[in-house]
Design a protein around this nucleic acid. Sequence first.
DNA 1: CGGAACATTGATTGTGGTCAACTGCTGTGG
DNA 2: CCACAGCAGTTGACCACAATCAATGTTCCG
Lengths: 243, 243
Amino acid sequence: MMWTNGTQARAVHPSADAFALLEMSDETRDDMLAHSSPVQLERGQALPSLAGFLSDGVVGVAGAASDGRPLVCALFHTGDLIDLRRRARRPQGEARALTAVELIAFDVEAIDAVIGAHQDLAALWIEQIRDQFATLRDHCADLSCKTPIERLASALLELRRWPENVVAGAAKAQGRAVTLRLPILRNDLAGYIGVKPETVSRVFRKLEEEKLIEIQRRNVICLKDIAAIRRIANGGRPRAPTR
Amino acid sequence: MMWTNGTQARAVHPSADAFALLEMSDETRDDMLAHSSPVQLERGQALPSLAGFLSDGVVGVAGAASDGRPLVCALFHTGDLIDLRRRARRPQGEARALTAVELIAFDVEAIDAVIGAHQDLAALWIEQIRDQFATLRDHCADLSCKTPIERLASALLELRRWPENVVAGAAKAQGRAVTLRLPILRNDLAGYIGVKPETVSRVFRKLEEEKLIEIQRRNVICLKDIAAIRRIANGGRPRAPTR
DNA sequence: CGGAACATTGATTGTGGTCAACTGCTGTGG
DNA sequence: CCACAGCAGTTGACCACAATCAATGTTCCG
């Protein structure tokens, strides 16, 4: 894996300026940056702060089960504001890098004052958390009652929403087909959709047998029939009746 | 069921002033109320607005499965600010009253300006959504990898967090025991923890056989050993190994 | 190459969904 | 008052299916 020398300085990644895409005034931006510190993490490392801006990579929040059951209850992607603070007593759950990550970690003591001082930032912050809340509601709906194949289909469509996961080029050419670069490992994907890695593997194979996807490499798959995949994701494969 | 005369005027419910408990200036409060309208809903009715303050009752957000699988992907309780807006194209999912509900429905066109104008409201709003986000993450963790008995234990402890669900009196007397008034039906509870009503019934019976709870009435149960219930909720009942 | 990490495949079994029948309760109306 | 309908919840029998465990395969490094 690249970038194993975590804290060491290195050339700026092209996507590192995702921060510049956030719509806010320069003044607000400067004020935010004044109370933050950029860090680089490798896969597996815990986030140093409960709040930050994810300028590159994927972060997963793990819940706390007393035994070591792996699980990923929420995903953050490049361009997301992260705010995991809560009023509740025990701060259970922990955020970890699922890929190599660039993070602008905020000083949680100071960032609230910055938010309060800048109306545009407050609006942006609310919009971000609100969207993540909505995404998580959808995800909960998947976990509540869907079959593994429906969950995986749903997760694939969700990953497609982030441009950095979509492989350019082949996309337009093949009509409705889209080639996806899965940013996370099977293990984490399985944890996210609430099944075991073996099941993910079996479901991938099933989808490929049905010509709906094509597994090109371990983490590169082509969605060949988006419409059919969406139909499955919306509940098109309920469990068989007992008869 | 009481209050079947939905829109008809009636005496103010004691808990209707939960709104007064929100920490904000009078000016902010007046400004909010100027852009909102109080409504009363009975069980099953959809919320008239994507944003509001829940002054009494329980609201559930249902996801959208193409077949009619019931599910409740998020719960709101008395005292919660509700903001279900999202940038995403299709506004899937729908909020419905799971009990009789009193709601101060906000005008979604105007409420953002009110938030922008009042710093205290912005801070409050962020804190609320952030907390709901955190609660939902915990819930996702439950759904991802826990067994039905663990999920139900977790849900019971979650419901205990809202004082209106706790039956006063017997609570203090019995030491660690707490009597809970379940605000929602078995069906909705099952949908929330991602199992079928039959399973909820079986798990309740199992918990009662183990003397951890006592089902006093259909919707009144006594948690007799909170510590043991919490141990289960945290992952104390994994599925048996195959051997 | 060798080795570790990641991923897949196969055989087996526990278990929660499914369906169906039943109980208990409440309100309605004759 | 009982009869009845309607709804919420429970119980039982059955079995599809995903978790388990084990072994093998693949990829990616040094």
